[in-house]
Amino acid sequence: MSNIVITPMVVPAHPKAAEAHEFRTMVRLGNEMARTDAGIDDLDETVEETLPSWLDQTDRLRTGFIARRDGEIVGAAEFSTSTAAGTLAADLALMAPAAEFRGGTAQALLDQLEHEAASLGRSVLQTWTLHPASPAERTLTPVTGWGSVSSTPMSDLLIASGYVLEQVERNSALPLQGPLDDVRARLAEASAYAGPDYRIVCWNLPTPPQFRTGYAHLIASMVTNIPTGDMVTQEEQWDEAKLVRHDERIMAGGQTLSIVAVVHEPSGQMVAFNELAIGEDRAGVTQQWGTLVLGEHRGKRLGTIVKCANLLRWREIAPDSPKVTTFNAEENRPMLGINEAIGFVPASYAGGWQKKLR
């Protein structure tokens, strides 16, 4: 490891800026590692989509590091954490070829990230690994007991460094090119079951002013209303200003985001939502981001309503997208059941890891 040099990553002002080489290499290494570990190319990110979240750090601090050997970039790492007072957790990401996890580069980057966390007073470190859909010879079971993942060079490094596999998420995929008659029928059936107290609303970013409060509340509720095992989570505070920044970052990256939500008419509260996103390439893979039904409104098939309504809406927005992909905790059987009924199938898996510094 003595010949590995780690330096702070230069964040460019623009994707095509002269100083963008390190940032572009970080994104490329991340995509290559995701393809190797997950066995699919559905999760690729672009520099254009990624950069806006690094340029606006009002709500989340992001710091990058580059590892070089003999002047050549051999790895990268990202440290991110909320800027809110009292934040305990930090998210870590390592990006390097498999050989660098055995050759010391990844360990050096991980040590740098842990030092960064300690210097900022973050006591809980969290990260995610990707894994193929087909199990390997050696598998790992999370603390939750739900699901398992195949070992990878990164998971081996994390175990050796004191991290605990807390949770497994399933990455599911649904082909979008076939007929959507079944989706349409499921939406009609679920809507009839929910009854007239629930009304569908939908929009693309930017969020209209009349929906900002409800949408912000649902995003904030994601942290505490979805299964996270023993992963440390903290309540998030979202107001309209923060939501506007959220929208602006996504749009600055050239992404289109469709939101379908349900409003509970008697209370006027927005109680469920689903998000579908795609980059500038409308023939690329669609990503399903958040899906949530507030606890007191579960059992009304609102999850089916927002998912199916958005899939039908998406056909008009991105008709050439071949598939949609999404992640759900293995213990979140109600949401996985909805996905399976619609036609989603496992495409890969993710492991949630955690280490407490004190």
Rank of each mutant, 00 (worst) to 15 (best):
G290S: 05
G279I: 04
R184V: 06
T63W: 02
T83V: 13
L302V: 13
A76E: 13
V232F: 12
W238C: 05
P175E: 00
N274M: 11
T129Q: 01
R212T: 04
L110R: 00
W54R: 01
V345H: 06
R24M: 09
L125Y: 04
R199K: 14
F101H: 14
F211A: 13
E72K: 08
T207K: 08
T233G: 03
Q210T: 11
R28D: 11
R62G: 02
V232Y: 11
E45R: 12
H131M: 10
R62N: 12
T152I: 10
L140E: 10
S172R: 13
W314T: 08
A318M: 07
A241V: 05
A341D: 05
I226N: 06
Q57D: 07
A341F: 00
N3P: 00
A283Q: 03
A188K: 14
R68W: 06
D42Q: 04
Q167Y: 02
Y349D: 08
P208Y: 09
T325H: 08
P196N: 02
K307F: 09
R170W: 11
H264T: 10
G162F: 07
E235V: 14
P346D: 10
V232K: 13
S53F: 12
G104Q: 01
E22R: 04
A194S: 11
K300Y: 15
L311A: 13
A20L: 06
L158V: 05
R245L: 13
G39D: 04
P346L: 12
E330S: 09
A192W: 02
D281E: 13
G351F: 05
A350Y: 02
Q107Y: 00
E330N: 05
D181T: 14
Q177G: 15
P196H: 02
D37S: 10
I200F: 07
A188P: 01
H14Q: 14
H264D: 14
T141N: 02
H14M: 10
V201Y: 03
M33R: 07
G299N: 11
L29Q: 06
D281F: 06
I278T: 06
K300F: 15
A173H: 08
S321N: 11
L174E: 05
L176A: 11
S80V: 02
